[in-house]
Simulated scan of single mutants.
Amino acid sequence: MEDILRPIYQERASQANTLGVIMTEKMQKAIPATDTFDAVLLILVKEADEPVFVKHYTYKDKKAALHIVTDKQLREWILLGSNRKIFDWLYNGKVLFDRNEYIHNLKVELREFPFYGRKLKMGIEFAKLIRRYMDGKAFFENRHYFDAYNHIVHSLHHLARLAVIENGFHPEVTVWNQVKQIEPEIMKLYEELVNSQEPLEKRLELLFLASEFLIHSRTKQGITHLADVLAQKDEWSIHDIMNHEELHLYAVDLSMLLEYLIDKHIIEVVNAETKGQGIYHRYYKLKKKLS
């Protein structure tokens, strides 16, 4: 496949804007890294009019995909975990072109996983975990067991990803394979939820109890980044929190995370008077620094 695609990537590699070219070929039908394509050509560029540009090609009975991605978009995917296939491409793809060791240095950075980036990634993952857990619990309490099941499965997935990050690794496409080695306790919970012969209501009840403990034990690590930011000033409005250059990455999960931390007495609400009688502005304050 490389010979077939050579004219395409060589043309791009000759451009000064191109940082690197990686090709990933389909190895197993069970692994969705190439989205069923026989090959994926990833071309990384400094900048472009569009952060992602995709083209599809056909050659006889083969098909290939070309992804042109900016460095900024790539780093956002790595930080937010919003495109998990990118890790497979970077780790397992064949490097066809590497300007000034850009891809080599990127792989070193991924392996070393700088601690600050890890803290931020843990915070984002913890917020997703809390969102799924709290929504699932609400469905369970209202006897919507299938919806609760859906949410608890997702919350376990976020818990698994959080455990992988805590241990200094990036969660990959096969995250459960990673967790099996790193945190077998979480894997056991997942297997009990999926494989148990107990009635669904009983399975969920046990899982919520077990998850409560695991979430509690990870709260300190999970909110380190958020706490570091909130400690920078005494009180925060929700507008300031949601528009902070790093906290906005928590997106829609941020409000739920704040409410969870208020319930756990880690954040306190400070009311400030408005012109309306009995109506107060609501501000947020880190109640205690994490030891």
Rank of each mutant, 00 (worst) to 15 (best):
A227H: 07
E273I: 00
P114E: 01
Q197M: 12
Y250V: 10
L230N: 05
M1A: 14
K107F: 08
P171Q: 08
G222W: 00
I31K: 10
K289P: 00
K55G: 05
A65G: 13
V252L: 14
N150A: 15
R6G: 04
Y260E: 05
T224A: 14
K128I: 08
E76H: 11
P51L: 15
I165P: 01
Q178S: 12
A30N: 05
Y284H: 05
D240E: 08
F126L: 06
I4T: 04
R12A: 11
Q181N: 06
M187N: 12
R132P: 01
L200F: 11
I68R: 09
G20P: 06
M23S: 10
A48W: 02
L110Q: 02
V179M: 04
K180F: 13
L258C: 07
W77F: 10
A39L: 06
V54K: 13
E76I: 12
G168H: 02
Q15V: 15
F140Q: 10
E185W: 08
S82L: 05
N177P: 01
K85S: 12
F169S: 11
K220W: 08
R161C: 13
R282P: 01
S82G: 04
I215A: 07
E185F: 15
A251Y: 07
E101A: 15
M1W: 13
D234A: 02
P51W: 12
V95F: 06
D253W: 03
V164S: 00
V175H: 03
L200D: 05
E141N: 14
F213A: 11
E268S: 05
M256A: 10
E76W: 07
L44S: 03
I8L: 10
E192A: 12
L42T: 12
E192P: 01
V40W: 02
L120W: 05
L204F: 14
G93W: 08
F115Y: 15
A65E: 14
H239G: 03
D49E: 14
N92W: 09
D38T: 12
Q10W: 11
K72M: 11
H144E: 13
A138I: 09
R111E: 07
A210D: 05
I124L: 09
L209Y: 12
K285E: 01
V252M: 13
M242N: 07
T58F: 09
V108I: 14
G222R: 00
V45K: 09
I223H: 03
Y91R: 14
F140G: 08
D35M: 09
L209E: 11
L96R: 03
H225K: 12
N167Y: 03
A127V: 04
K180V: 11
W236R: 00
M256W: 04
D234N: 02
E235H: 01
M122Y: 04
E11S: 15
E125Q: 15
P114W: 10
R84V: 09
N150M: 08
I31H: 11
A30Y: 10
P114S: 02
F113G: 00
I22K: 02
V270N: 00
L120H: 06
A30M: 11
E235C: 00
G136D: 06
N243A: 06
I68D: 02
N150T: 14
L261W: 01
T274G: 02
D147H: 10
